[in-house]
Design a protein around this nucleic acid. Structure first.
Lengths: 198, 198
DNA sequence: CCAGTCATGTAAGATGTTACATGATTCC
DNA sequence: GGAATCATGTAACATCTTACATGACTGG
């Protein structure tokens, strides 16, 4: 169900074709709530059935003549607002990295090291991504964000931008915490000699 | 597939009945990789089919006479070791909290505050949980952990305990980062006055 | 002429969630 | 007598993943 609200949030920036949504999703909201095309297109159709978005075929459009343009409806805006008012539920943890680490006694030191380095690489890449996002907020160069802000009364724009930045900063902080953790893990791997039998 | 390895990790502490696995899972590995009973029991059967665990009905057992005791096999140990050697893959983010925060312009200040407070409450509860785990490691009072360590040669015990502790500490650090983030968010909500129209 | 982008999915399978069933025993 | 624990699931549904299909048009 969250995908639905992620898409509504996207469409609050203005009307877009399914393809546009799909592409832009991958480089913005998709970082926060991943979904492949094969989920996005059908979900848009379902949202249309439920009246949250209005879709219409575009003429002179795409290669297969089947380009569909979606616009958020008033009901869609309402649904987005209502979702925002609900208290969030937290999904139970499913964390491979920490699960592995808790049982490193079954891994060779090399594998532990590899896992921790992969952890660092993963979060380092995320930091680059989030810092790019922050740059794009500050410089107002991200197309979706700019359109999003344009849809708001001028007085609210800096507020909206501040929250978006705030969200990104939280993810950077989390990634940094993860990296620091993995570095400590690497030191632990060095500290404890490999067991003879493993 | 990860559930399978989480269960193998559990069973590395020694043989247990399905029920025991299920209960203990919820208070140890389940914090790292959640699974309900309805997933655990069938998975154990599948693992038995694949030869990773050996199961046998216990006589004089439970209320319905259907208590099953599982023991990890050599193939199971091998599978666990092999999994530990693989490089971990990171699932794409699906993060409701940060998704919401990025679009707080659609929430009332009250709802934003509520969401951030729920975030703090959630992670505070997790910290309590992880600190309890650490206490149980240090004092060697957790039954599953104690059995786990007993199955290892004495020289490797402190190493295994250190890794388990390391894993928990990482989760505490993450939770603390999340709490600090939410606190900053609360200040932001105060800072930016509520828009008139919302 | 070949790779990439445009544009929208279907299909099959794996995994996860939620609710419920069963019935004896033990503790208060 | 009633609630909780023991013990093991089934069933239905929702969601997610992975692979693939289609075919025109665009740039090098």
């Amino acid at each position: 169900m969250t995908l639905r609200y992620a898409l509504l949030a996207m469409l609050s920036a203005g009307p877009m074709t399914g393809y546009e949504i799909s592409r832009r999703f991958q480089s913005t909201v998709g970082f926060l709530w991943h979904a492949p095309d094969s989920q996005i297109y059908p979900e848009l159709r379902k949202m249309e059935d439920d009246g949250l978005v209005a879709g219409e075929d575009e003429v002179g459009g795409g290669p297969r003549g089947t380009k569909r343009r979606y616009e958020i409806t008033d009901a869609g805006i309402r649904a987005l607002r209502e979702w925002m008012e609900t208290t969030p539920r937290y999904a139970p943890d499913r964390d491979t990295a920490h699960l592995r680490a808790a049982y490193f006694e079954w891994a060779t030191p090399e594998a532990s090291r590899r896992a921790l380095e992969a952890h660092i690489a993963h979060f380092s890449a995320l930091i680059v991504q989030w810092e790019k996002q922050i740059y794009e907020i500050d410089e107002r160069v991200n197309d979706v964000l700019v359109r999003r802000l344009e849809h708001l009364p001028p007085a609210e724009r800096s507020r909206a931008a501040a929250f978006k930045r705030f969200s990104d900063e939280g993810l950077i902080a989390r990634a940094e915490t993860g990296i620091a953790w993995a570095r400590r893990g690497l030191r632990l791997v060095e500290l404890y000699p490999a067991p003879a039998g493993a």
